[in-house]
């Protein structure tokens, strides 16, 4: 945990060699907190204001050091695994510090601008060669607009390309504050039908659609991103309406539109946080389904449409097993 000095960023993950959040090779900084509650959220660890503790079964040797130590008596271990009493746990972090196997981890660390800048600068060579840079994601990074503004300002001084990943839901002022230091806006348009949008994300999309109009008017570089979630956003109507909005209301002045296929990698995260996930039993899409939505998106007249993400083939099923088994837990962080 970094010591408090001046302004602090509240961050739950720094992903090096990130290749899915903007052009080139990037470092994506995942900020905590989000005003939306999307049913398919892939980064549930971003949602909470206070730090929370996670338990990684594969790392636990069952030594009970943490249980002996916990003053709140919030931990218990049985054959099902570790139970964390979320009401009792005050996230003091003592168990995290003591756990020999790093099976207990604290989600959320405070970073100073200086330290964060030093950390992301380590990969400068790769940004230069790939025309990549830094992405602020989350959660909704702009919730911490003071910090992100200061951080991006310093990034620009150091010559890094900056991308802000946003829901667009916050008041315009929040984004306007960061505005001078953002090279690329990764803008989520998830669902066009406002009733559905409220149902899926807990908020209306009115502000979201207004804010993107403002950015277009300001001639900003924008990549629109639409998560394609089966039974939710994955409908022909939705894709067509977002496409028509881009063409008609935004004068087709965005730089790229990404359709992101649903993935179920967050399953384990929800389990670790003792949370239910509405998408737990959702199947991956077939590549043909993604191709179908992709064709619809293109047919609306939007230029530079792309699709990416996991789809249901023998190979991807295998690679998912591989990820859950072999990759460090942090690799599961995905944009939604």
């Amino acid at each position: 945990m970094k010591m408090m000095e001046s302004i602090q960023g509240y961050i739950f993950e720094i992903q090096k060699m990130s290749t899915e959040d903007g052009p080139g090779i990037r470092t994506t900084v995942f900020f905590k907190m989000c005003p939306l509650r999307c049913v398919w959220c892939h980064n549930p660890e971003s949602l909470f204001k206070k730090p929370s503790i996670q338990w990684f079964q594969v790392k636990c040797i069952g030594c009970r050091t943490c249980i002996d130590l916990c003053k709140q008596q919030a931990l218990s271990l049985d054959e099902e695994g570790m139970h964390i009493d979320r009401d009792e746990c005050i996230a003091c972090g003592e168990c995290v510090e003591a756990c020999p196997g790093t099976a207990l981890r604290m989600l959320g660390e405070y970073w100073s601008v200086e330290d964060l800048l030093n950390e992301v600068a380590k990969d400068r060579a790769y940004y230069v060669k790939s025309r990549g840079g830094i992405t602020a994601s989350g959660g909704e990074a702009a919730v911490q607009s003071d910090f992100v503004t200061e951080f991006f300002k310093r990034c620009k001084e150091d010559g890094f390309h900056t991308a802000l990943d946003l829901s667009g839901y916050l008041p315009k002022e929040k984004y306007a504050q960061i505005f001078p230091y953002v090279d690329l806006w990764l803008y989520d348009l998830k669902e066009f039908d406002d009733i559905k949008h409220q149902k899926f994300t807990g908020v209306s999309n009115t502000q979201i659609l207004e804010n993107i109009k403002w950015l277009v008017k300001e001639n900003r570089q924008i990549w629109v991103r639409t998560p394609i979630i089966p039974t939710y956003t994955a409908s022909e109507k939705n894709i067509r309406e977002i496409g028509n909005f881009i063409v008609n209301e935004l004068d087709n002045k965005i730089d790229r539109w990404d359709l992101l296929a649903f993935n179920n990698l967050a399953k384990a995260k929800y389990a670790r946080m003792d949370m239910e996930w509405a998408c737990n039993d959702l199947d991956l899409l077939l590549p043909e389904e993604m191709e179908y939505f992709f064709e619809i998106a293109k047919s609306t007249g939007v230029k530079n449409v792309k699709w990416s993400g996991l789809t249901k083939t023998v190979e991807t099923e295998d690679s998912q097993r591989k990820i859950s088994k072999f990759a460090p837990p942090s690799c599961g962080v995905q944009k939604n």
Binding site: M17, T19, G24, I25, D123, A125, Y126, V128, K129, S130, R131, G132, K306, S308, E315, S319, K322
Partner: peptide
Amino acid sequence: FNPSMLREPESKEKFKAYLRG
């Protein structure tokens, strides 16, 4: 590396950039 890395033309470009890095 996992094979998924080199599936798309875009990621191939990123892999080349990684080698230049």
